[in-house]
Simulated assay, not measured.
Amino acid sequence: MRILHTSDWHIGRQFHNQSLLADQAEVLEQLIERVETDGVDVVLISGDVYDRSVPPADAVALLNRTLRRLCQDLEVPVILISGNHDSAERLGFAADLMQASGLHILSRLDTVTEPVVIDKNGLEVAFYGIPYCTPEGVRAAFDETVKTFDEAHTALVERITEAWQPGQRRVLLSHCFVSGGDVSESERPLSVGGADTVGWRPMKDFDYVALGHLHAPQRAGADHIRYAGSLLKYSFSEVNHHKGVTLVDLNGDEPPAIQHRALAPKRDMRILEGAFADILAQGEQDERPDDYLLVRLTDKKAILDTLSQLRAVYPNVLHLEKPGLDVDRDARLHSREQLKRTESELFADFFEQAQGEAMTDEQREALQSIIQAVHQDEESNQA
């Protein structure tokens, strides 16, 4: 049986006020093509399908089109769980009715011991799902005296393992933060102070564990316990991530064969660092000028209308940093000296920056006359 593991789609996400819906539609189309060309038998989505609990209408429409293509057109079953960004109740609406179409939504804690069982050429695989949960949620659903995320998650895993049936391979979907995982800035913390982490060892006896929440593709404690990572790069801390999906082949009693398959976004996310003039020159030759960019300028002097000039060659500059203008002790001393300068000296600096040339003697004399006239008017008004 060939399984495609994906997670953290975050449909409807905005990044620096830029909608990513078109980018998500593009990469989901690639996912559908991979399901078809790679002969995938079942698709797993390990939570955070939407970016927020009440998603916008166009995000719902995109998810609907994607699931229809997978379940109806390709007749590939989809199993998904809710994540911390999703509303479990909204995502799980009419879940029982959708099972007949091949869509299995596991968003309720009280059904964690009820697997979705799929048979492929005599290989029977039981898929269990643990949606995002809190210790409070587990205490409310079961008679469990759990206080931490780890205790709550372990209690659910133990309930599942006690319900195992002989003769089946077992796969677990879980949306959680396994301790030691590589985090990024775009993941919403589950709690404060690191108390949200769970251990990987209780899950080690599953044949494969399909995790969601962390956005970097990675193993978590054991080779068969994996995060597929997010569908796209969702922060500049993820620029070095290799986004994609995970293919898992289960054959008989053999260990799973696991492969990462890359997805190519319509626009990549990059960080450009250097002098302003160099970055402008680079933009003229750049093969991907439409990528989402963080530009970090190393120039020591202020530059007028920086962002507009950059966007003339890189239209999707989303964030601009100027570390070269950060003042150290010497620079702060220099700034205090600057405050002691006269109006004419300050304006002369501005004129040279704006016009690209120094003021002439005639211009300086005219400026001095204007400044004197202004001071005289102020004195008259105060008299």
Results as ranks from 00 to 15, higher is better:
residue 352 E to A: 15
residue 39 G to W: 07
residue 232 L to E: 04
residue 111 T to V: 15
residue 142 F to M: 03
residue 368 Q to H: 06
residue 227 Y to L: 09
residue 301 K to A: 15
residue 289 P to L: 08
residue 331 A to F: 00
residue 339 L to S: 13
residue 298 T to I: 01
residue 291 D to P: 06
residue 271 I to P: 00
residue 46 S to Q: 13
residue 77 P to L: 10
residue 274 G to S: 03
residue 98 M to C: 00
residue 320 L to C: 01
residue 135 P to T: 05
residue 290 D to G: 01
residue 81 I to Y: 08
residue 270 R to T: 05
residue 18 Q to G: 00
residue 200 W to V: 12
residue 204 K to Y: 01
residue 76 V to A: 05
residue 356 G to F: 11
residue 201 R to E: 12
residue 372 Q to I: 09
residue 19 S to V: 02
residue 241 H to K: 09
residue 341 R to K: 12
residue 24 Q to H: 13
residue 30 Q to C: 01
residue 281 A to V: 08
residue 67 L to F: 08
residue 84 N to S: 08
residue 272 L to Q: 10
residue 342 T to W: 01
residue 207 D to R: 12
residue 362 E to F: 08
residue 340 K to P: 01
residue 350 F to I: 09
residue 24 Q to W: 08
residue 172 L to T: 01
residue 58 D to N: 15
residue 195 A to E: 11
residue 351 F to Q: 00
residue 314 Y to P: 00
residue 380 S to L: 14
residue 194 G to Q: 04
residue 244 G to Y: 11
residue 180 G to T: 11
residue 333 L to A: 11
residue 314 Y to K: 07
residue 177 F to T: 04
residue 283 G to R: 05
residue 76 V to M: 01
residue 258 I to Q: 08
residue 335 S to Q: 14
residue 229 G to S: 12
residue 130 I to K: 02
residue 291 D to R: 04
residue 364 R to D: 02
residue 286 D to L: 09
residue 114 E to V: 08
residue 263 L to A: 06
residue 235 S to K: 04
residue 182 D to W: 10
residue 48 D to W: 03
residue 144 E to S: 11
residue 160 I to T: 02
residue 29 E to R: 15
residue 1 M to G: 13
residue 8 D to S: 10
residue 372 Q to W: 07
residue 9 W to I: 05
residue 156 L to N: 07
residue 28 L to F: 02
residue 298 T to Q: 07
residue 330 D to W: 03
residue 305 D to L: 03
residue 109 L to S: 07
residue 112 V to D: 01
residue 233 K to L: 07
residue 88 A to S: 15
residue 373 A to V: 04
residue 252 G to T: 11
residue 196 D to C: 14
residue 307 L to H: 07
residue 11 I to C: 07
residue 348 A to G: 05
residue 321 E to K: 02
residue 24 Q to P: 10
residue 104 H to K: 04
residue 360 T to E: 07
